[in-house]
């Protein structure tokens, strides 16, 4: 099945279309995707566009396959030995699962931020510099420093850490650590950023800072976020994917629409029940 979509060959990024542009382009396209762990089907037959420079939220009750779907978008699910997929996921029209595609390069283009902030046990500067070196090989000290500063600024952390770049990342607060992880992710210059419940370990103020940051980042990046917090999905995302577990326990997508529609007049009764807090 994978031969119908050409492999991803890491094309150069195109110029950014205006965010307010009426015409939407799909940065990624999930086509009839099923994800299996051994014989267990965790996600069933999901078809979905992920629009360029927009925020797409994936919501649904626990166990409905949200994180599995998210992880399949940058082949993170392959780190589980028994995992396999059916269907296609295309990035700029090229299948990321096609033979010969390097998953490391896919993960460079599609970065990920995790639920709990996971900085390395190194300095703030090193945390960012590590990722840059990993993907770019050798570069001059000044060039590296410029990239570190740029990433920290982009993640709205620079003003808070500029005087303590040599200090351990562990000295930062939870919210700052999460923004450091976002800075580390975008230092690799991805095109898509996946976020798996990025605020679930944070207090409300730190959560709002991440949400504001997401609005900034979507000028340049396509963002997909999994969240259990429906108000967060309603606040930050442009599009929402509603998932539910089928009787055979496979997760399926039951509705995809503009976030505004999902939270005010969803088409599916199950979405209605979930977003109004009547289904858990």
């Amino acid at each position: 099945m994978t031969d119908t979509v050409p492999p991803a060959n890491v094309p150069a990024r195109e110029a950014a279309p205006p965010v307010s542009a009426g015409a939407l382009t799909a940065k990624m396209h999930v086509d009839n995707l099923s994800v299996f762990y051994g014989s267990f089907r965790a996600v069933a037959e999901v078809t979905l566009p992920i629009y360029d420079r927009r925020i797409t939220a994936i919501i649904g009750p626990s166990g409905c396959g949200k994180s599995t779907l998210l992880r399949s978008l940058n082949r993170m699910n392959e780190l589980v030995p028994s995992a396999r997929i059916e269907g296609h996921i295309a990035l700029d029209g090229n299948d990321i699962y096609a033979p010969g595609v390097d998953p490391v390069l896919v993960r460079r283009r599609v970065g990920m931020v995790f639920q709990k902030p996971n900085p390395f046990p190194k300095s703030i500067h090193e945390n960012i510099a590590y990722g840059i070196r990993l993907y770019n090989g050798h570069m001059s000290r000044s060039e590296l420093d410029d990239r570190v500063v740029h990433s920290l600024k982009r993640a709205a952390l620079w003003d808070e850490v500029k005087d303590k770049l040599k200090q351990s990342a562990y000295a930062l607060s939870g919210g700052q650590q999460q923004r450091l992880c976002i800075a580390r992710t975008i230092a690799a210059e991805p095109e898509v950023v996946l976020m798996d419940e990025p605020c679930s370990a944070l207090d409300p103020v730190a959560t709002l800072k991440i949400e504001e940051l997401m609005q900034e980042l979507k000028q340049d990046y396509t963002i997909v976020i999994v969240t259990h917090n429906m108000q967060q999905a309603a606040r930050v995302s442009d599009y929402t994917v509603m998932m539910m577990m089928r009787p055979d326990r496979a997760g399926e997508m039951i509705e995809f629409d503009e976030t505004q529609v999902i939270f005010t007049k969803p088409r599916d009764k199950r979405t209605e029940d979930y977003v109004s807090g009547r289904f858990g």
């Binding site: 429906m230 108000q231 309603a234 939270f263 005010t264 007049k265 969803p266 979405t271 209605e272 977003v275 109004s276 807090g277």
Partner: peptide, 9 residues
């Protein structure tokens, strides 16, 4: 209560 959908309408 942060209502949504039909409740909010």
């Amino acid at each position: 209560q942060q209502p949504a959908a039909a409740d909010l309408r």
